[in-house]
Design a protein around this nucleic acid. Structure first.
Lengths: 257, 257
DNA sequence: TCGTGTCAAGAACGGCGTTCGTGGCAACGA
DNA sequence: TCGTTGCCACGAACGCCGTTCTTGACACGA
């Protein structure tokens, strides 16, 4: 089957007089887009570790060497996959100063959602400056929203980057559990229940004299699911950045650095 | 007495009458500790990617199969390395309610320091619940400090975990630049200058109509080094968690969830 | 019809994690 | 003192990986 066409042309049917490239039959033309599409299919189905040059080539009924005509590296392939994934992010409407906190969180949620929907792709952006158009647009929007809300420029610039780091890290963290669950062959709920049970037992059975706070608060330590915790950390960050807004009707004891 | 330990003496010529096998007996006893020590030496010298079972075995003048008698997995080896590294962390004195914010930051800095000193070991704890004694002690201390400062238990439990995630993520982020610098063969300063210059150019040359906030704030986006940004994000988080302290003389519009 | 250039792809290189089987050595029982 | 036994180091091998070299088939311009 043909992948969805990405660029403007190419969706035309092949002229009948042009021979169907090669005697090996209806082989599809290799192209960067096709390779990236295929790699993302493998990613979604089996996780990032399954995305190898050989595996992608096999999926396209060819050898690994063939990919290097369209992609210089595995690293470049991963970057391209990330760029493509980022295109799925929906950017919220224009900045609304009255709702700037909510908008910052909406953007963070959107990034988190898209990264989480594609297995452990979140491993890729950790540590590589994202230069894809979509990433840049997210960053631009986050910045605009904060500036509209009255956050000073430097705090907004750094804050946006820190929030981005946090979102990435949490998405990656979550994807690891997904990978382990996949490897264990269990259902999601069963895996989670078993895993959390083990951690709870581990914490609860620590020597209470050396770890009093931990043992006494096992209930709170274990409460909430991944989404609750992501939301909590995000709220921490947003409250923190809000404290840099000058002349606010709150938070005036240690504000503004 | 001969043929125990002292691997330095193996450069002696082997007596012709002694079977070759015997001379290799001058090896040091393998043990888990020795393997972990060696692996950390490789890590510090060449980065985490250089830590392979083969590489560590080679460093010990043996074959990779020999390691599996003392370590069940590469994953287990990495966990053991992390545990060992965490032992270098110094835990601050006991909780001082008046200084709880500073103490939280001190703990975070200490974790960050030790992780950063060992190349990209920070890749390991991202996504695996740390169960080493040292990690637990850090968590216990962080929890105690927050509770002493008046943070409600659930907020303290979640907050400590979120801060831990942030510290890990930032340490990992930093280690990637170190790895790339190492790969490029440049000096640290030269690498950084070149890298930041490229990013600055990239941002500055974006189309100003589509990325107005980005282009207008290039200066702020690029300002500060890694430590400044780490500090800033940490301060964001601490201010955020502080807003959960009830009956504070600040922050009372949306506190306590 | 004959180059010619492009690009798919087979083969191979060196490295990886891991397992299997073997063989040497130390400790122990007779 | 001499088997015997059990443990453990380790060579070899398996099946992956990313990447490169080389070949060769095809479409196309001359």
């Amino acid at each position: 089957m043909f992948a969805m066409e990405r660029s403007e042309s190419t969706s035309l049917p092949t002229p009948a007089w042009r021979k169907q490239r090669k005697s090996t039959g209806a082989r599809q033309q290799l192209s960067q887009d096709l390779i990236v599409d295929t790699a993302i299919r493998v990613l979604d189905a089996e996780g990032l570790d399954a995305v190898s040059m050989r595996r992608v080539a096999q999926e396209l009924d060819t050898g690994p060497a063939s990919l290097y005509a369209h992609v210089s590296n595995k690293e470049e392939l991963l970057d391209l996959m990330l760029d493509r994934v980022c295109e799925e992010m929906r950017i919220p409407a224009e900045p609304d100063p009255a709702r700037w906190r909510e908008q910052v969180k909406e953007i963070a949620y959107e990034i988190h959602r898209v990264l989480s929907e594609h297995a452990d792709i979140a491993r890729v952006p950790l540590g590589s400056i994202p230069t894809g158009a979509s990433s840049l647009r997210m960053n631009e929007m986050m910045l605009s929203v904060m500036l509209a809300g009255g956050v000073p420029p430097r705090a907004a610039a750094w804050g946006a980057e820190r929030i981005y780091l946090y979102v990435n890290a949490d998405a990656y963290d979550g994807s690891i559990h997904l990978a382990k669950q996949r490897a264990s062959g269990m259902e999601r709920d069963e895996y989670m229940a078993r895993f959390l049970g083990q951690v709870r037992d581990f914490f609860a059975n620590l020597p209470a004299d050396r770890f009093p706070a931990t043992v006494r608060n096992v209930g709170d330590l274990m409460s909430g699911d991944g989404e609750d915790r992501f939301e909590f950390g995000l709220e921490m960050l947003v409250r923190g950045i809000a404290s840099y807004v000058p002349a606010n009707d709150q938070a005036n004891d240690q504000a503004s650095d």
